[in-house]
């Protein structure tokens, strides 16, 4: 098999592969920076919790309208935003730690979703919601993902400074501006939006992987925020392309393939990463002059 057959032919020959490529590209542009900030704000597990919070909303949408893009998106968005905003408001208004507040909200959301589904007595096929269908992305889904990415990048441009300040020195931000709370809620909304965008391609549970794994991998290579966001995005897109090719050639499910490639990159970074990687600890290098 030639180099062309391996890397280019699948995309050149099949439209569904080109759509998947465009979808993965759009997803990576949003997931890269959002994942980087989730990690820097020590909210890595928040993404996972939010993915669970979206699940019942999407399932309810599926229950009432079948595999309808808009119904599932609206359900996922409503459930995710309710949990994100509710948990954020309760944490700020009461002084309760945000992780505890979020856990309370997403567990209620999850239980409510399961209850509604079981009351309908229908054996709902949630495989689509759980694992996505990146190879089955249609025009409407592609437009939705691209729209979410556009909103994400524009919102990040607006809240970038308070977001950074709230991470590094929240007391200083509170002393110079009241934008901390608004930017936090805006950021949580972006997390939800990107998870909802991602679940059509990767499923709710895997879409968080495209946020967190590239960000965690990038941390082993760069020390600068801009570089971290850029590297996260590139790793996410690289994992997407490689995952699609693996899926095409080996016949494996596309969503898990993409996340596993991102996981391999993370494992490689843990071992070989120049900043804090294991190899640097066990292979002695000469110290510097200053």
């Amino acid at each position: 098999m030639s180099l062309f057959d391996t890397f280019f032919a699948p995309f050149a020959e099949f439209e569904f592969m080109r759509r998947a490529l465009a979808g993965v590209f759009a997803l990576s542009l949003g997931a890269g920076p959002v994942g980087a900030f989730l990690m820097l704000r020590r909210m890595s597990l928040t993404g996972d919790a939010m993915a669970h919070a979206i699940l019942p909303g999407a399932a309810i949408g599926f229950l009432f309208a079948g595999l309808n893009l808009y119904a599932m998106t609206a359900g996922g968005l409503a459930a995710g935003l309710l949990v994100a905003v509710g948990a954020g408001v309760v944490a700020r208004a009461t002084g309760m730690k945000e992780d505890a507040s979020l856990a309370a909200f997403y567990l209620i959301s999850l239980a409510l979703g399961v209850l509604i589904v079981s009351l309908r007595g229908s054996n709902v096929d949630l495989l689509h919601v759980l694992f996505g269908t990146v190879l089955g992305i249609d025009d409407a889904t592609l437009m939705l993902i691209a729209g979410i990415t556009t909103v994400t990048l524009l919102t990040l441009a607006v809240v970038w400074r308070p977001l950074v300040l709230e991470c590094v020195d929240p007391t200083f931000l509170a002393s110079v501006s009241r934008s901390g709370g608004v930017s936090h809620i805006a950021f949580l909304s972006l997390v939800v939006l990107n998870l909802v965008g991602g679940f059509h391609a990767l499923g709710t549970l895997l879409s968080v992987g495209l946020m967190m794994l590239p960000a965690a991998t990038a941390r082993f290579f760069v020390r600068d925020l801009t570089a971290l966001v850029t590297t996260s995005t590139l790793i996410a897109f690289g994992s997407g392309v490689a995952g699609l090719l693996v899926s095409y050639h080996l016949g494996t499910p596309s969503g898990p393939s993409i996340i596993l490639v991102a996981g391999l990159a993370y494992a490689g970074a843990v071992i070989l990463g120049p900043i804090g990687g294991l190899a640097g600890r066990f292979v002695p290098r000469r110290h510097l002059e200053a």
Binding site: L40, V164, C167, V168, D169, P170, T171, F172, S175, V176, S177, R178, V222, R223, D224, L225, L228
Partner: peptide, 20 residues
């Protein structure tokens, strides 16, 4: 109050954040 400069105790700053 936002025109007042405030230097908090150092412990409140996240030193692990990648900023120069």
């Amino acid at each position: 109050p936002r025109e007042i400069a405030y230097l908090p105790q150092g412990a409140e700053i996240d030193r692990s954040f990648p900023i120069h």
